[in-house]
Amino acid sequence: MNILNGKPIVVNVNGLKIGRGNPPVIIAGPCAVESRDQIIEIAKILKQIGVDMIRGGAFKPRTNPYTFQGLGVKALEFLKEASELTNLPVVTEVMDIKDIDVVYEYADVMQVGSRNMYNYSLLKELGKRDKPILLKRGMSSTVKEWALAAEYIAIGGNSQIILCERGIRTYNDFTRNTLDLAAVPFMQKLTGLPVIVDPSHATGVRELIKPMAKAAIACNADGVMIEVHPNVEKALSDKEQSLTPAQFEEIVLEIERIS
């Protein structure tokens, strides 16, 4: 018998409630933490714009082994400092079982990336922790596989799970992935969990992020997660899909209008 059986679950992140009946949550920040100055600068800007949580990668799973892999624990320390200065909860990815304890120490929400959705050993260990988990959909996974990955976490005792639709790989060749918005209401009903959308990874195209973020809110997603960088032309990763603060602020205003 599945623990996640469709009964609505509201996730609590330091008093911020995510799920049915609550306003959509807005998570934003750079793909990767590149320096102390970078993450503190963008955190202060995002705080003024009105985001709910800040994101930033400390450990980066990159297809190309020669690209920027993240600053590791040093990045976690920078994220923590930015969080303390702005009072914004931190969302960051954990890639390996051996890193769970250190990420747990610094993060408010531990993210499982698309490549690790099938890492059942990692999911089981995260199920033993008492902090919310953001579970991204695997780039080639069905909704059933995605739901069962969440079940692996819930079995361990942790049902504080936020699902994130981030696009899947299809025959489409004009965007990075194909954003499956139909999965949002379907997974909300199937699991009872809140579902947010990542239009940055779903499209990989800066100009498409705004319309897809609006569409996500229109289909009743519980929030969005968007990549924002203080200097997009110098971003060390995902430059093509990173927004400037001004571009991002336009989206926030649209989300407020739609929701």
Rank of each mutant, 00 (worst) to 15 (best):
M139I: 14
P132S: 13
R129W: 00
N158F: 05
T142N: 11
G127V: 13
I162R: 02
R115W: 11
S140R: 08
G157S: 06
P132G: 12
V143K: 13
S141I: 00
S159T: 15
K98C: 01
A149F: 04
K98E: 14
V109D: 04
E125D: 08
L122E: 04
Y106F: 15
I161N: 05
W146K: 00
K128Q: 14
T142V: 11
L148T: 11
N172Q: 15
V143Q: 05
R137E: 01
L134F: 08
D173Y: 12
E151F: 02
L163S: 03
N172E: 15
Y118D: 08
S159R: 14
G138E: 06
K124E: 15
I153A: 02
I162K: 01
K98F: 03
E105I: 00
Y120M: 14
V112Y: 04
A149Y: 06
E165K: 10
K98M: 09
A147I: 03
I133K: 02
Y104G: 05
K136P: 07
L135C: 01
V102D: 00
P132V: 12
A149G: 13
L126D: 06
K124T: 12
Y120I: 15
K128H: 04
V112C: 01
G113K: 02
K124Y: 15
Y118A: 13
D96H: 13
N177I: 01
D101S: 14
G113H: 02
T175N: 11
Q160I: 03
G167F: 07
N116C: 04
E145D: 15
I153C: 08
T170S: 13
I153Y: 09
Y152W: 15
E145V: 06
S141F: 08
A149R: 06
C164F: 03
K136C: 02
I100S: 09
I161E: 03
C164V: 12
R137I: 06
D130E: 14
G167H: 09
A154G: 07
Q160F: 05
T175S: 15
N116R: 11
A154S: 14
E151L: 10
K128W: 00
L126M: 13
T175H: 08
K98Y: 11
S114C: 03
R137T: 12
T175V: 01
K128G: 00
V103A: 08
Y106W: 12
G113M: 04
L122R: 05
D130T: 10
A107L: 06
M117F: 04
A150P: 10
T170P: 07
I97K: 08
I97A: 07
Q111W: 05
K128P: 00
E105Y: 13
